[in-house]
Computed example of a mutant assay.
Amino acid sequence: MIELLSESHGCLVGFQFIGEITSEDYYEVFMPPLRRAIEEYGVIRLFVDISDLQSEGIGAMDDDVREDSRVLYIERQAIVGDEEWERKLNYVDHFFLFPNSDLRFFRKNCEQDAWDWIREGMPQTRRMHASLQ
């Protein structure tokens, strides 16, 4: 399951990945808010918490998102997870890792640091409105 986080606002889109991820989660929950935020703001920032992710078979969706030129508009990514995920991400690409963006990995107990970093230098904006959710 993928959840859009309530902290999402303006050009910042945040998600939590929980358990097994299906293609429906990807196409119906993950991609639509990204596309809408990119259409509205041009360049966006992405927060992804994978600390409860159980699935590793999600790489097939990777090709779809990378072929979409809009992913080039993701300026900064904060990924939150445990030590095991940090090691795995050094060897495999997953569909929430986008090329040409500033990426930092944060441990689960450092979530607030991840939010602070992802928001750094962002203009103050309103909460993400209903059309992005």
Rank of each mutant, 00 (worst) to 15 (best):
M1D: 10
M1V: 12
M1L: 15
M1S: 10
I2Q: 03
I2P: 00
E3K: 13
E3M: 15
L4Q: 03
S8R: 06
H9M: 15
L12I: 07
V13L: 00
V13Y: 00
G14Q: 05
G14W: 09
F15R: 02
F15W: 00
Q16C: 07
Q16F: 09
I18C: 12
I18P: 02
E20C: 12
I21D: 02
I21P: 05
T22I: 04
T22A: 02
T22M: 07
S23G: 15
E24G: 13
E24K: 14
E24I: 15
Y27D: 15
Y27S: 15
E28S: 15
V29T: 09
V29H: 03
V29G: 03
F30V: 04
M31C: 15
P32K: 14
P32F: 11
P32D: 14
P33C: 06
L34Y: 07
L34S: 01
R35G: 04
R35V: 09
R36H: 10
E39R: 08
E40F: 08
E40I: 10
G42I: 07
G42R: 04
I44K: 01
I44D: 05
R45Q: 07
R45D: 05
R45W: 06
R45N: 06
L46G: 04
L46Q: 02
F47Y: 13
D49R: 00
S51L: 01
Q54T: 10
Q54Y: 08
S55A: 07
S55Q: 01
E56L: 15
G59L: 01
G59I: 01
A60Q: 06
M61L: 15
M61C: 10
M61Y: 08
M61G: 00
D62A: 08
D64M: 11
D64W: 12
D64Y: 12
D64P: 10
R66M: 07
R66I: 07
D68G: 00
D68K: 02
S69I: 05
S69P: 03
S69Q: 11
L72C: 14
Y73P: 03
Y73I: 01
E75H: 12
R76T: 04
Q77I: 11
Q77F: 08
A78E: 00
I79R: 01
I79Y: 02
V80N: 03
W85T: 10
E86P: 09
R87K: 11
K88R: 12
L89E: 07
Y91E: 06
V92R: 07
D93Q: 14
H94D: 06
H94P: 06
H94L: 04
F95E: 04
P99L: 11
N100L: 12
S101T: 12
S101D: 15
S101K: 10
S101I: 14
L103D: 05
R104C: 13
F105E: 00
F105W: 04
R107K: 11
R107D: 13
K108S: 11
N109V: 12
N109A: 13
Q112S: 11
Q112P: 07
D113K: 10
D113N: 14
W115I: 09
W115P: 04
W117I: 12
I118V: 14
I118L: 09
R119I: 03
E120H: 12
E120I: 04
G121C: 00
M122I: 07
M122R: 04
T125V: 14
R126C: 14
R127H: 11
M128W: 02
M128V: 00
H129N: 11
A130D: 15
S131R: 12
S131M: 14
L132A: 00
Q133V: 11
Q133A: 14
